[in-house]
Computed example of a mutant assay.
Amino acid sequence: MLTVHHLRISQSERIVWLCEELGLDYDLKIYIRRSDNNLAPPEYKALHPMGIAPVITDGDIVLGESGAICEYIDRKYGDEKLSVGPDSPDFAGHLFWFHFANATFMANGMMGLVAAQMGGPTPEFVSERVSKAWALAEARVGEAEFFGGSQLTTADIMMGFNLTTSRMFGNTSLEGYPNIAGYLQRIGQRPAYQRAMEKCEPGMKPKLD
């Protein structure tokens, strides 16, 4: 049985959304962050050597890393419905945004968050990278309906968290990003996204604006 281990307010919401988009039968286990430091509880950290979200278990398989999990589930259980083949004009764009989501967009944001927590000014090169990443995302969803191109793909699953729940950590405003704001409204209207957020973040209003 495929089990999604969801740590509240974390990247693992992506995997719940993915499963809902694919209409899969899966087990969802929810873990609450510690009250003293807001980190994952010991039982979550024990799931995988990295001790971070997301994590899935599937029989004897324990798998971490958002991108790897998205590919695993879409290929094994989703008949690659949320992937784009090399014959599609959206192939390159889908691959770029799928990998850009964590390799660049989230990495830049994390550098800025760490700098802020240390109490010092954000380094100029970090600010520039963050601004460029947001500008690139704004341009993408101005020219295409989805980050994956003409249809929702795992690239959108990956980017979605960065533009929604992740903003709770830095209070990033969508002012000046009308295309992203419009994109998030489209995402918020998807029944699968609504089901996912109701299941993994009960009582929390999705951060779509």
Rank of each mutant, 00 (worst) to 15 (best):
K29S: 05
I56T: 00
F100C: 02
A40Q: 03
F146T: 06
L113F: 15
F100M: 05
S83H: 06
G51W: 04
D27F: 01
W134H: 08
P121L: 08
L82S: 06
T3W: 07
P41V: 01
S88I: 04
A92N: 09
E65W: 05
A139P: 00
K207H: 12
G149M: 09
V4P: 04
G78C: 07
V16Q: 08
Q151C: 10
P123A: 05
A68D: 00
A68N: 01
L2A: 11
F146P: 03
K76L: 10
G176L: 04
A116S: 12
G176E: 03
L136K: 14
M50H: 00
Y183H: 14
I52D: 00
A107V: 03
L184K: 14
G51S: 04
G85K: 05
K81P: 01
R33K: 15
I187M: 15
A103L: 11
P123L: 03
L82R: 05
M106S: 11
A196C: 06
V141L: 02
A53H: 02
G109N: 12
F98W: 10
P123C: 06
P49S: 06
P191Y: 06
D27S: 11
F100I: 03
G142S: 04
M158G: 02
G149Y: 04
H6M: 05
N171F: 15
Q117Y: 07
S83T: 13
T154W: 04
G120C: 11
H48A: 09
L22D: 10
E21I: 09
G78H: 07
G148T: 13
G120P: 10
E43S: 06
M197S: 08
C19A: 15
A107G: 05
C70H: 12
G67Q: 11
L152P: 03
T122K: 13
N179P: 04
I9K: 05
V141M: 02
G148L: 08
L24C: 11
K205M: 15
L152G: 02
E80W: 01
I32E: 11
N102R: 07
R186C: 13
G149F: 07
M110T: 10
L18P: 13
K199Y: 01
E198K: 12
V141E: 01
E21D: 10
N37D: 15
Y183A: 13
L82Y: 09
A107E: 07
G120Q: 15
G203Q: 10
W97K: 03
V114A: 11
K81S: 12
D74A: 07
E13N: 12
D209T: 10
I61A: 00
D58I: 00
